[in-house]
């Protein structure tokens, strides 16, 4: 079996969110970058577990990004995977453009399984996996919480409106992964050492359209400030929620 895991780079979850150049760009100064948590904890770790179960599995990682993304993809390789492919572009604002790049690599790689994270924690798109699956005309199982494979049939638990369901579907497929798929791991020394020598191929992007653009960013309006209420006066809290906030 051949698996491709899509890895993206995001600001650390505690990073300060600020913008520059007339609110058109994210202020990157001082920001720590991490592997997007959904890609790392759920997609990548589950793929590594599948490879541990069946060592003949080939596991590739793909990232669309500039050279500055290489430390992140090395970090991912330290967790596991045989090789990584970086598609060399810094045009990352339009999801369709990014998805077209991933689909091109996937098309040429003959993968049985393509894993993405549920969403990136910076753009919150939840859309690249769906786009890649359409570009490849493959089934898409979104928001998976459990995944197993037997021969060429995958059994996937996924979230749908109002609950969860278990699906059976033939490979090849695209799956977006979220909590439940796997438990987060930390890389060990051997992984970190071996990651340095694993192949990291750089390919140039293909021509693709950008369908959207980001005109500007904005921060939510500041809260008016907290109103403190004595723990002995819950009647006052309920009155405020009823009369002032009008939420009960």
């Amino acid at each position: 079996m051949k698996i491709l895991v899509c890895i993206s780079k995001t600001p650390d979850t505690t990073a300060k969110i600020a913008f520059k150049n007339g609110n058109t760009q994210f202020e990157e100064t001082g920001v720590q970058w991490i592997i997007n948590p959904y890609d790392e904890w759920y997609a990548l770790v589950r793929a590594i577990e599948l490879k541990e179960k069946d060592p003949s599995t080939i596991l590739h990682l793909v990232m669309v990004g500039g050279a500055d993304a290489e430390p992140i993809i090395r970090k991912a390789l330290a967790l596991g995977g045989d090789e990584a492919i970086r598609i060399n572009t810094t045009k990352l604002q339009d999801s369709f453009y990014v998805a077209s790049q991933i689909a091109e690599v996937a098309k040429n790689g003959g993968y049985d399984l393509i894993f993405t994270g549920k969403e990136t924690i910076d753009y919150n798109g939840s859309s690249i996996g769906a786009m890649v699956s359409e570009l490849l005309d493959l089934p898409y199982i979104s928001l998976a919480t459990k995944f197993d494979v037997q021969g060429s049939t995958a059994t996937v638990t996924r979230e749908i409106e109002g609950g969860e369901e278990v699906n059976e579907v033939s490979l090849p497929i695209v799956v977006s992964c979220q909590k439940g798929m796997a438990e987060a791991r930390i890389p060990n020394m051997r992984g970190i050492m071996s990651a340095r020598t694993k192949p990291l191929k750089v390919v140039e992007p293909i021509e693709a359209d950008e369908l959207t653009g980001i005109n500007s960013f904005e921060l939510p309006p500041a809260k008016a400030g907290v109103k403190m209420i004595s723990p002995d006066n819950m009647a006052e809290l309920v009155r405020l929620l009823h009369e002032e906030a009008k939420v009960i």
Partner: peptide
């Protein structure tokens, strides 16, 4: 979440 991205790719239509 399952289909918005697919529709965007299929129709080559910008999606937010």
């Amino acid at each position: 979440r399952a289909i918005a991205g697919r529709l965007s790719a299929r129709l080559k239509a910008a999606m937010v």
